[in-house]
Simulated assay, not measured.
Amino acid sequence: MIRLLALLCVFAAGPALAQDKASSGQGAFLRGLDKVNGRTQDVQIRNGETVEIFGLDVALGDCRFPVNNPTGDAFAYLTIWETGQRQALFDGWMIATAPALSALDHSRYDVWVIRCMTP
């Protein structure tokens, strides 16, 4: 039980600790999946932009990555909603190496972060 609590504390503190030694990228590479037909779509998006991935609109607030490992553990602030709708389906940080920790919950589509765009 104590090990489980310690492990949960490490995962919960991970993004907060990473922000101290993280740098903002110019944007992010995202991947979308249509679960019905198995199609994937890779998208490049800049900070502050909104793109359509299948039937979803995805807005990127920021993409951060470890300073000492630019291709490493990226995390991006995404807002995702169905095209033509107002209510967000997802609004928060998504981590590239652990997408299940904070994931989009949609019956047909899935979106995850691949990496940040670095200079």
Rank of each mutant, 00 (worst) to 15 (best):
P99H: 08
N69H: 05
S23T: 11
D57M: 13
G48Q: 12
D110I: 01
G32L: 06
S24E: 13
N37Y: 04
N69P: 02
V36S: 13
V51G: 12
I114K: 14
G48I: 09
R3H: 10
Q87R: 14
R86M: 09
V51M: 06
N69Q: 11
R108G: 05
W81F: 05
T50N: 02
D42W: 00
G25T: 04
V58S: 04
C63R: 00
D42K: 10
Q19L: 11
F75P: 00
I95V: 11
C63G: 08
A12D: 13
W112I: 02
H106R: 07
Q19P: 00
D34K: 01
F29S: 09
P15S: 05
R115H: 04
D57Q: 15
T71N: 12
N37T: 07
S107R: 11
P70M: 00
D105L: 14
T118D: 03
R115Y: 05
D34T: 05
M1N: 11
L104E: 07
G72V: 01
Q26R: 13
A22S: 15
I80T: 08
N69F: 02
T71L: 13
Q85M: 08
M117Q: 14
V58A: 05
C9I: 06
G72H: 06
C116N: 04
L17I: 11
Q19Y: 15
T79Y: 01
N47E: 13
K21V: 13
V51F: 03
P66R: 04
L33F: 15
I45S: 05
R86H: 10
Y109R: 05
A22D: 07
A6G: 12
F54H: 04
A96Q: 01
Y77I: 06
L60M: 07
E49V: 09
L56C: 10
I80M: 03
C9P: 00
Q19C: 06
Q44P: 00
